[in-house]
Nucleic acid binder design. Structure first.
Length: 896
RNA sequence: GGGCCUGUAGCUCAGUUGGUCAGAGCGCCGCGCUUACACCGCGGAGGUCGCCGGUUCGAGCCCGGCCGGGCCCACCA
């Protein structure tokens, strides 16, 4: 195949002794991040080569982090996963398209700006040139909401832009420090002009194809932010409430009891509803009752959604207390009697369906009250009227909240824009389910979340928001002779005019003075939901409109990395947009990262206040160390925040530096004359080591191809530690023998040196995606260019040098060495202590390996006398009858 | 109520199609300054693989049930 497996150039571990490597006397991780970030930047190491064709490109739809504060270690975690993937495929020879974006539009930024500058947006105000905010920074936080200075939308947006620009600089600095191999010339903002153009163009096309539509309907509404909220942004939370048993009255005065947690909605009641099969209420169906206090006559109806087990089995249907009410209202064609307004208070005017004197008098008390105080008033009145049976019974119920809000959502009728997503159309839903089925999730079980969500949609995608800092809905409405907007014939701008702001720009055929006057026009006042823009990140990043040539080279993209919590939002909405616009998936693969849990196993999030900011960690432990920690966790699995794991990563990175220093002390192999150097590897132990490494290369490569970076790292790391602890020790003497003059050394010495160089070359490449700084540092000691643009290692050249050797020879020799070490450790003597004589009891299977590497075992174990070998059935080598040579007394250093 | 994930040494986790699978690292204990590394090295102790059944010659690994942890959806009378 294939796009992802281009032919590798015939390079590999290559070696020819030349000059000495430029190895520092003292190696260190300190300062590598700043040095290499600058070098990569200057050399364009990660610059995307846009001359490549789609088949030669690996494109990544980067998650744009929300710019409303600071990044935390969870970001470091998941973004490292992506970077490992990017680096792997880059080394595999694909040109990696890896842009970075900032999600800076939307509510989080609005709130941050309000708190930072002590202002709030009032779209009715005019723009002020050269505006200066009353506060800045911490001072703005102390300003009460009521005292925030009202400013125009344009001034507000300017402040948003200013603050996000500052945040984004800090974000970029952090990502650079972490070593993300992003091409920083390709970055975008979701509030940026390009993003607005893309978002509005896509919307206008959705509109033209009737995929977007406007409708007035009851919907979930956040009374704090005073905006409509989409299904995907809901969060069910526990909320205290109370059941109130309330009496309605039949014409003869007899009571019919219902239970409700929302007694303040009694003035909005439109029916009582019970299950059609519920025998208790058969005699009531078709009759009417009157509501207590307000005396409104309402029907008793049957509907299968009523559950006999709940409460007393008969419910009061209000417009609107919950989504079931909406369904009853729609299906039973009930009247609309809304009493809740958009600010969460009861309407100020007494509704016309309340006609009784007592009802009117009571409603005047309720007018303008919040639901909470209205409830108290209604309950007191019910109690007084004798229509409250018993006292309210406290209960803990689930209520829907906007995920960023802190008051339960109400249901308010409003006009909104929707994009069809299968929520009301079985055929489209099945199509989108099938689209999701084409997507390769990593790990694969995450696909279930997509299927569950799409299968459970109960409405189309609500995209309009009554907010300020976002992409405007790009339409106007004609005003009729009465000045009323004609929502059925929205005026869309031509694509060439985009982006537009309908509150400032004027539609074709109108003049500015016709705004807001009968026969004129009005702009849609709303903005698009954040997801309506970020669902287009592949198009924004890939240059869909601005750079079609680029777009053709990167789209559909290869990879969407993201968190599991936004499969229902970001992932799904992106699939929807791509399906509607391009008839394809936006990417072939989705890599889903888990969460970071704090040491108490709680999800780490800003709202919980348990976040750890990354820069301090990066500076203390080093970027490679944090990357190691992140790369140690599998995709889709939550991971603990563990300092210990970072320390291990740091140790590994330092080990890479030191082991490399050792290997390169024997001369700097260069990339020429590969065959010649491979031929130098003649000693069985050396060949066995390379054979083992070849296996590691194959398995690690396969793991990375399957998005299993954890296994690749583990395989490489395990090999590397054995390489350091056993192989290096075994060949150390042989490698040192004969001095530095290359031509004079024995074949054994030449073999060790060649094998060490070959192994180091492959090991550095294997580690490069996870430890970009340490590996690049070493690479710079002996090679031209960047390790991150070097080809990914292949096993072929290693096997050629290994000549079919058996990797277990290294294991056998290592086991023999361990046995000798154990003797010394037990005797509490230095590892340098010489052994005059020893018998090694060797497992049958390891016998040949020990025999063939005996000289190296002898040297590494400091055995000066005879080694007797016996075979036995066992798992590892055991040393016995050992004669240790007593150490000579240490010379005492005299300090004068 | 439906669904997904998960429960292996004190801690964090590997254990790929059931047959040396009882592992690694950290931590802990002991030892050692060995011309790559004391930001190090060497050695050691530690677990009836959540529980109960079943399939099998054989099960952390497969099946059923139970218990515990996490998450998503539904449930707002």
């Amino acid at each position: 195949m294939s796009a992802l497996n281009p032919e590798q150039p015939p390079t590999g571990p290559t070696i020819a002794r030349t000059t000495a490597a430029q190895v520092p006397d003292k190696v260190s991780l300190d300062g590598l991040e700043a040095r290499w970030d600058a070098a990569w930047s200057a050399q364009g190491t990660y610059a995307f080569d846009r001359t490549r064709t789609r088949e030669q490109v690996f494109s990544i739809d980067t998650p744009p982090p929300t710019v409303s504060g600071s990044l935390h270690v969870g970001h470091v975690f998941s973004y490292t996963h992506t970077d490992v993937v990017a680096r792997f495929w880059r080394m595999r020879g694909l040109e990696v398209f890896y842009p970075m974006g900032w999600d800076d539009n939307g509510l989080p930024t609005e709130r941050r700006v309000q708190n930072y500058f002590g202002v709030r947006c009032d779209p009715s105000l005019p723009y002020v040139e050269g505006y200066t905010a009353p506060f800045e920074g911490a001072a703005g936080k102390s300003v009460r909401a009521a005292d925030q200075q009202p400013i125009s939308r344009r001034n507000f947006v300017e402040l948003c832009m200013r603050l996000t620009a500052e945040d984004e600089q800090q974000f970029e600095a952090l990502w650079r420090h972490l070593g993300l191999s992003v091409d920083w010339s390709h970055h975008y903002q979701t509030i940026g002009r390009d993003a607005q153009t893309v978002a509005q163009t896509a919307f206008v096309r959705n509109l033209a194809r009737a995929e977007a539509y406007t409708a007035e309907a009851p919907g979930l509404w956040d009374v704090t932010f005073q905006t409509a909220v989409a299904q995907a942004e809901l969060e069910a939370r526990d909320y205290p409430g109370a059941f109130h048993k309330v009496a309605f009255h039949r014409p003869d005065g007899s009571p019919v009891y219902i239970e409700t947690t929302r007694p303040e909605l009694l003035p909005a009641v439109v029916a009582l509803i019970a299950h059609p099969d519920d025998e208790r209420y058969q005699h009531l169906f078709g009759t009417t009752v009157t509501s207590p206090l307000f005396g409104v006559e309402i029907p008793v109806l049957a509907h299968t959604m009523a559950e006999p087990e709940k409460g007393v089995g008969i419910a009061m249907c209000c417009t609107f207390g919950d989504l079931t009410d909406v369904q009853w209202w729609r299906e039973l064609q009930l009247p609309t009697r809304s009493v809740l307004t958009r600010d969460g208070r009861l309407t100020r005017e007494t509704p016309d369906w309340i006609t009784s004197a007592a009802g009117t008098a009571l409603f005047i008390q309720l007018a303008g009250k919040t639901t909470f105080s209205a409830r108290t008033i209604v309950v007191d009145a019910l109690r007084e009227a004798g229509d409250l049976d018993g006292e309210p019974v406290a209960t803990q119920r689930k209520a829907n909240f906007y995920e960023r809000g802190d008051k339960p959502l109400e249901i308010v009728t409003s006009r909104q824009w929707y994009i069809r997503n299968g929520g009301r159309d079985a055929e489209l839903r099945d199509t989108l389910l099938a689209r999701g089925g084409e997507l390769k999730f990593h790990p694969d079980f995450m696909a279930v979340r997509y299927q569950n969500w799409v299968g459970g949609l109960n409405g189309d995608w609500l995209v309009s928001r009554q907010r300020f800092f976002g992409v405007p809905i790009p339409v106007w409405y004609p005003l009729d002779a009465d000045g009323e907007p004609r929502y059925d014939v929205p005026i869309a701008p031509p694509e060439s005019a985009l982006p537009i702001d309908p509150s400032a720009d004027v539609p074709a055929g109108y003049t500015p003075d016709q705004r807001g006057v009968p026969g004129g026009f009005m702009g849609d006042p709303d903005i698009m939901d954040t997801w309506a823009t970020s669902s287009l990140t592949p198009q924004i990043a890939g240059g869909w409109l601005a750079d079609p040539d680029l777009f053709a080279r990167v789209f559909p993209m290869n990879l969407r990395p993201q968190g599991q919590d936004i499969i229902r939002t970001w992932l799904f909405s992106t699939v929807v947009r791509s399906h509607l616009e391009h008839g394809s998936l936006p990417w072939s693969d989705a890599a889903i990262s888990g969460w970071i849990l704090d040491p108490d196993h709680k999800k780490m999030s800003k709202s919980k206040g348990n976040v750890v900011t990354p820069m301090g960690l990066l500076e203390e432990h080093g970027s490679d160390a944090l990357r190691y920690w992140a790369a140690s966790a599998r995709l889709g699995t939550d991971a603990a925040f563990e300092i210990g794991q970072m320390k291990i990563g740091r140790r590994l990175a330092i080990k890479v530096l030191n082991a490399s220093k050792f290997v390169l002390a024997f001369g700097a192999p260069d990339e020429r004359a590969a065959l010649l150097d491979a031929d130098l590897v003649t000693v069985p132990l050396d060949r066995a080591m390379l054979a083992g490494l070849a296996d590691v290369v194959d398995r690690a490569t396969s793991a990375l191809e399957q998005y299993d970076h954890t296994r690749a790292l583990e395989l490489t790391e395990t090999f590397f530690w054995a390489f350091c602890d056993d192989y290096l020790e075994l060949v150390k003497d042989r490698a040192y023998a004969g001095g530095a003059v290359e031509s004079d050394v024995s074949t054994g010495t030449a073999s060790a040196r060649a094998a060490l160089g070959i192994a180091l070359d492959s090991l550095l490449r294997l580690f490069a995606p996870v430890l970009p700084f340490a590996t690049e540092e070493v690479w710079s000691w002996w090679r031209e260019g960047s390790v991150h643009r070097a080809p990914w290692p292949t096993s072929g050249p290693l096997r050629a040098a290994a000549r079919d050797a058996d990797p277990s020879v290294v294991t056998a020799a290592g086991s023999a060495l361990a046995a000798l070490r154990k003797v010394k450790s037990r005797a509490k003597v230095s590892m340098r202590t010489e052994i005059a004589a020893v018998t090694l009891v060797v497992p049958t299977a390891l016998g040949p390996g020990v025999e063939v590497a005996l000289d190296d075992v002898r040297a590494a174990g400091r055995v000066t006398g005879t080694i007797t070998i016996e075979t036995a059935e066992a798992e590892s080598v055991v040393a016995r009858d050992t004669e240790l040579v007593p150490a000579e007394p240490k010379p005492v250093e005299l300090h004068i």
